[in-house]
Design a protein around this nucleic acid. Structure first.
Lengths: 212, 212
DNA sequence: ATTCGTATAAAACAAACGTTTGAATGTCAA
DNA sequence: TTGACATTCAAACGTTTGTTTTATACGAAT
């Protein structure tokens, strides 16, 4: 087979990612994935070697690329702002994750996979942290640093950026819990409200770096 | 059997909770649990009926009780503060989760189980949210409200309390990721630094409610 | 036309899974 | 001591698991 890029392989990555994100690695069977991808049971082992290798391939060939898009969305959003002040940086960060260049389903996929790998560190964690998260966090730290008064404790700065990420991820992952506590569905009216809350909260949080 | 409260049952709850927290429900087998609890394979089905029922029993008979202790620790810490200002409330909240009345292993267990149930909502989620989280969040909201100037949007207030919780949970669950990004192990020197960062960041974050 | 490498299909594999069974054991009341 | 009940145990149950095998179909290259 020359061109035409293997179709079954792509479908396996698509449905594999979706199901791994929804249920977690162990809770999904290869039969479930191959049925969803509408192909034969043996296809996973043929194309990837094993279920575990499919999982890693999902991170390498899907997740990482989307992470790159998220980061690019962040850069482009920020480039559009003339002043590029603290608020712009944080708003761009929240926007990249919550209103970024993904469908709602993709976003769910992306963030859930990330969370699963962070709380159950596996073979994909190194890639997630070193290749994606770390450079991203450090870039944002570099963008924030000039806006702070006086000398800045580098570690506190990174903790602050991580805190913002924590808030963003939390409102995504704990959706059902959040919904019931604020008595509000995640509808199209609520989401911008959420983004503006996260931005405001984090912006003020960052200012804790200014005074000692 | 009259008194002496079944020992095997307790051991199953202990090791079951630990393993469910570490690996998640589907990734743990009943053989693994019964081996850890040093009892017969059939013990789970005898005492609880099924693996699923053991999972629910863990939440009812272990997690919920510890959640009560966490909340009590919060109340007592706060009662010890004479002024009971905004900072005291938030510091007490962070302290309850991160330095509360639990061993390090118990804390890990508690928070991981909570997170797992929030991102994979199952039969235990209702109990976690309605009986524990919701009242807790609302209580903290009530404690914070009087310290804010002017009229307060109730929803924004709750979102802020949830944001604090999000930050706290994130630094716990994403430990390996955080460690590598700030280039710092979670040792005894780092932990107080973390608590003080969370308190400072959240305290400033809360103040975003003051201005419009 | 034949050969070769690729992709899909159906069937079978051993291992691990949650659960059930029935006998053995221990404990207390009658 | 006896009978009844609660608990533990080894063994087996029928499924489901991830993986392997064997066979077949298709295209391109020789």
């Amino acid at each position: 087979m020359a061109e035409a890029e293997d179709n079954t392989r792509e479908r396996l990555l698509d449905h594999g990612e979706r199901l791994f994100a929804e249920k977690g690695f162990s809770a999904v069977s290869v039969r479930e994935i191959t049925a969803a991808a509408n192909c034969n049971l043996a296809a996973i082992n043929y194309h990837f070697g094993s279920k575990q290798s499919l999982y890693l391939a999902v991170f390498r060939e899907r997740w990482a690329q989307r992470a790159r898009r998220v980061r690019q969305h962040f850069s482009e959003t920020l480039a559009g702002k003339p002043r590029r002040d603290l608020e712009d940086v944080i708003a761009a960060m929240a926007s990249a994750f919550l209103e970024g260049p993904m469908s709602e389903a993709e976003r769910r996929c992306h963030i859930q996979l990330m969370q699963r790998e962070m709380s159950d560190p596996g073979d994909a964690l190194s890639m997630v942290v070193e290749d994606v998260m770390r450079p991203y966090i450090l870039e944002i730290a570099d963008l924030i640093r000039p806006h702070l008064k006086g000398p800045v404790d580098e570690r506190r700065l990174r903790l602050s950026v991580l805190s913002i990420l924590g808030v963003i991820l939390y409102f995504f992952l704990a959706r059902p819990a959040v919904s019931r506590i604020v008595e509000q569905e995640y509808d199209s009216r609520f989401k911008p409200e959420l983004v503006s809350h996260i931005t405001a909260f984090s912006l003020h949080g960052i200012h804790s770096l200014n005074q000692e």
